[in-house]
């Protein structure tokens, strides 16, 4: 998909006969979008490779946040008149993405999903805290 976007933006001046400055912006934007989509691919790879729920949430959140931000920034450079709306999307993603992943991780820990299958996990201070303060555990 990224290659499609890139080749599309390289053909942009030929198809639309726009002036040079716009084309440079469009090419830079296409490269930024390409980098964003690479991060998305790496995030998807991480989802497959990571051993447990928490690590999967980690790679999922990070990669998708930066990937989305970069894709939208690249789009804002390609089509400058959309930039206001795209920046508000970026703010929305940046504020809501961490919250959703926190809630998923909290629910996973609350359901006592095991931390890792291959005994790599070093420490679990939260379970220790709940064992020491039993009344803090929510129902």
């Amino acid at each position: 998909m990224a290659c499609l976007v890139l080749s599309g933006s390289l053909l942009w001046p030929v198809i639309l006969k726009k002036d040079i400055k716009m084309d440079v912006l469009a090419i830079i934007g296409a490269f930024i979008t390409l980098i964003g989509s690479i991060f998305m691919v790496l995030g998807a790879l991480g989802l497959v490779r990571m051993p447990d729920v928490f690590n999967r949430i980690q790679t999922g959140t990070k990669a998708s946040t930066l990937g989305t931000i970069l894709s939208l920034l690249g789009l804002a450079l390609i089509v400058p008149s959309w930039s206001g709306k795209l920046i508000s999307f970026i703010l929305f993603v940046g504020l809501t993405n961490p919250v959703s992943s926190h809630v998923l991780a909290r629910a996973a820990h609350h359901l006592k999903i095991p931390m890792s299958v291959s005994d790599r996990t070093v420490t679990d201070k939260l379970s220790e805290y709940y064992n020491n303060n039993p009344k803090e555990v929510e129902e």
Partner: peptide
């Protein structure tokens, strides 16, 4: 993610 050995050492601190 890319490295084949998957160098992670997860834990809750």
């Amino acid at each position: 993610v890319i490295r084949p050995s998957l160098p992670i050492k997860p834990g809750i601190v």
